[in-house]
Design a protein around this nucleic acid. Sequence first.
DNA 1: CAGTATTGTGACTCATAAGTCATAATTAAA
DNA 2: TTTAATTATGACTTATGAGTCACAATACTG
Lengths: 212, 212
Amino acid sequence: MPKSTLFNLPEKKRKRITKTLVKHFAHKPYSEVDIEDIAQESNVSKGSMYQYFENKRDMYFYAITETLNKYLKVIEKIDFKSMSFFDYIKRGFEFYWKFLLNDRDAYLLMEKTALYNDSPYRKEVEKIYHSKSQEILKKIIIENQKAGFIRGDVNPETIMIFIDGASWNLKKAILKIAQEKGVPIHKLPKEVIESAQNEFLKLLENGIATKK
Amino acid sequence: MPKSTLFNLPEKKRKRITKTLVKHFAHKPYSEVDIEDIAQESNVSKGSMYQYFENKRDMYFYAITETLNKYLKVIEKIDFKSMSFFDYIKRGFEFYWKFLLNDRDAYLLMEKTALYNDSPYRKEVEKIYHSKSQEILKKIIIENQKAGFIRGDVNPETIMIFIDGASWNLKKAILKIAQEKGVPIHKLPKEVIESAQNEFLKLLENGIATKK
DNA sequence: CAGTATTGTGACTCATAAGTCATAATTAAA
DNA sequence: TTTAATTATGACTTATGAGTCACAATACTG
């Protein structure tokens, strides 16, 4: 946990530091992140960083939880009770892209946390991601199973894992398309994203098998 | 690429080194792997390691490609043209677990490379890994669309992405179960793995929506 | 078996970066 | 305005580990 000094800081300064932390941990493997760099980029001395945080690990976890919380705040605004599960997923994607456009680094850090994190703290980090992000999804699935929208003959945990995995891959794929075309995602034709999403939803809803 | 000296080595020695490399890169993040340790464990001096390889990166890529090739050799034996898609997936899982039991470290390295790899060479590595296994998968999907087993109204690329993501996550989840129970994966009751797989196939086949 | 070539070695260099700390600057309190 | 408390700083310490290299051991050759 960051020291209290961090929270005594003027808002602006703290945000600057947070942003830089997120950026650096999003773009480099843990061991290659240099606190000195972060300090400089935040217009703060390295010594100060150690006034605000216990150590590097502390900075890393702070960056991750801040990001995750920010994302959750967005996602939790969706009132899943007022819509079908598939609309919810659709809406979730929308919010997700918005989040991504607003703060690319935050997105990258989340992606890394969920997918490739290989820091010395991988297991701890995975636990945080699971409890914060996957649990919400699971809750909604259970809710929808009760309401009869989602099949009840499969473990909600499995469904959650299924969706989480597939949807991350979709996000990745869309980013890859953008990258290959050499355009930023927000310049990717809306149809491209929408059609990918719709196909994804079709598969999610009814599976890949041919229907008679 | 390793230097020629590596390949002049007696088979036994080279294998010992390879095995140690795989083990270390499988268990620790790239930056925490210490060449000195590897050298010692292989009964070789650190200096020698640098006779055989250009540098650390070289050792890493050698470990990875060796492992991948070994796995592909196994996977390519499956004659996927003669079976339905769902059998293929099932068979794929089987091979995967077998590989895991036979050569744990190799398995772990593959998993890490594909799932959490966060080395400075992540993107290069991803290219090597993904293209191969995804390509095979995509081919099979197209084949099965033609044969009428898989719906034809969705882009095969999307289906591939969907399956790839979901199934990786499933593997991850099974590993997590094992970990939570504190047992190694090969001691996990067969039913646990099988039921997870079956549920996965159900979702894949018919989707998550309630069927009337 | 002398001489040449190849391979093995580990002490050493060198760069890097985490974390500390004495001191300076700033702010708050009296 | 003086004093006390808090916060900022960056030079310094220290640990680490990649990569080198001069020399030793071993193998090859004629």
